[in-house]
């Protein structure tokens, strides 16, 4: 930002070595001679805010445009609202958002089921491509899944057995 040298007459040597050519921010910050004093530009028209928009607390407003994909909803939405009480500089912002994303996955499956759609998770994960390009990987995945599933079922069954015998006793 331009400034007037008169303001600094009380500081001996102020600006004496200033070198506008020594600008390591080019081509990042300063590419043009445009000067901008703070948040003073003529803003574009505001997109009507007709959905819930969570905006960063590091800005005073909603940007002139915003995306309307997937507004916050359900439990994940409540967590996202909580997250936006904290700044982008805070773990209190990002960690709840990651948690909300994981909860959103469960909400997504429930929404599919409520619509009468059973999500084909294997197809969504692109396992068909493995059949064509990665048979070995697919076989490994199937075997690992089968072994883990069997182990879990066996473990659960074993845990139930003593309870049954206890009841009989």
């Amino acid at each position: 930002m331009k400034t007037s040298p008169e303001k600094y007459t009380h500081i001996k040597g102020w600006g004496i070595d200033a070198d506008p050519e020594n600008d390591p921010t080019y081509p990042i910050k300063k590419r043009t001679d445009e000067e901008q004093a703070g948040y003073s530009w003529e803003r574009p028209a505001q997109q009507p805010i007709d959905i819930e928009v969570l905006h960063s607390n590091e800005r005073p407003n909603v940007s002139a445009t915003f995306g309307t994909s997937t507004p916050p909803a359900g439990l994940s939405g409540a967590i996202r609202r909580f997250a936006f009480k904290y700044s982008e500089s805070s773990y209190g912002h990002w960690v709840p958002l990651v948690l909300a994303d994981r909860i959103d996955v469960v909400q997504g499956i429930m929404a599919d089921l409520l619509k009468g759609t059973v999500p084909n998770i294997f197809a969504e994960m692109g396992w068909k491509a493995d059949l064509k390009h990665n048979k070995k990987g697919l076989i490994t995945k199937v075997i690992v899944t089968a072994v883990v599933t069997t182990a879990v079922i066996a473990w659960l069954s074993r845990k139930n057995e003593p309870k049954k015998s206890l009841l009989r006793g």
Partner: peptide
């Protein structure tokens, strides 16, 4: 945008200033 920082626009993302 006036500095041609079109990847850093301040009027297109309400959710994060970074």
């Amino acid at each position: 945008c006036n500095q041609q920082l079109y990847g850093n626009c301040h009027e297109s993302n309400p959710s994060a200033t970074a």
